[in-house]
Computed example of a mutant assay.
Amino acid sequence: MSRILILLASLAVFAAHGVVPNVVNNSVPNAAQVGQAKFTYYFWDVYTATLYAPDATWPAKRFALKLDYLRDFKGKKIAERSIKEMKSQGLDDGNKIQQWSAAMQRIFPDIEEGEHLIGVVDEDGVTRFYQDGQELGAVEDPDFATWFFNIWLGPETSEPELREKLLNGANE
């Protein structure tokens, strides 16, 4: 009987945290889900974001953020919105804005509902983007990793409730 209870408890934990994508497992040691949140704009569900870090511990030097899209988007629009969010948090370096915008427009594909993108930050602050296990491209500037992921994870995010759910109390 106790084995069945342990099995059921394990399945409940597994279901609650889901499967860690292979790209994340291969890039983040001991990757586990820190938190998850759905982003809704007015009454439209846009995506579900999931944050992974070693042993589900935040803050982390290496981590991954997965966005499961619930609507179709053009890659160019994702890049434009990312720059807008970074600017709203104080990014004002024109050279970086131009470089990062060009990189994201080159990297981000058009997305259809049900598809996902994963951004992974390595120990050197290099950000690599993946779709369906395939690397789309990388931005090697550690400043990019900070500004880009602060869209969701930084204290100046435009979506503090989403941040709170992603960090799951880990940054308090």
Score class of each variant (00 low, 15 high):
M1N: 08
S2G: 11
I4P: 00
I4F: 14
L8M: 13
A12D: 08
A12H: 04
A12C: 14
F14N: 10
A15P: 00
A16C: 10
A16V: 03
A16K: 10
V19A: 15
N22T: 15
V23W: 09
V24H: 10
V24T: 05
N26C: 06
P29H: 06
P29G: 03
A31Y: 02
A32G: 13
Q33P: 05
V34A: 08
V34H: 05
Q36F: 05
F39D: 00
T40Y: 02
Y42Q: 13
Y42I: 13
D45R: 12
A49P: 01
T50Y: 04
Y52I: 08
Y52N: 08
A53R: 04
T57A: 13
P59Y: 09
A60D: 01
L65I: 13
D68G: 11
D68T: 04
K74N: 14
G75P: 08
G75Q: 10
K76G: 03
A79I: 02
R81K: 11
S82F: 06
S82G: 06
K84H: 04
E85F: 02
E85N: 14
S88Y: 02
L91Q: 07
D93V: 01
G94V: 14
N95P: 00
Q98M: 12
Q99F: 09
Q99G: 00
W100S: 02
S101I: 00
A102P: 01
A102M: 02
A103R: 12
I107E: 06
D110F: 03
E112T: 12
E113H: 12
G114R: 09
G114A: 04
G114K: 03
L117A: 05
V121Y: 00
E123D: 12
E123R: 11
E123T: 11
E123Y: 11
G125E: 07
G125M: 04
F129W: 15
A138Y: 02
E140R: 12
D141C: 07
D141Q: 09
P142N: 09
P142R: 11
D143M: 05
F144Y: 10
F148I: 05
F148D: 01
F148M: 05
N150Q: 11
N150W: 09
I151S: 00
I151L: 00
E156T: 05
E156L: 15
T157A: 04
P160N: 14
E164A: 15
K165P: 00
K165C: 02
L166G: 03
L166F: 09
L166M: 07
G169C: 08
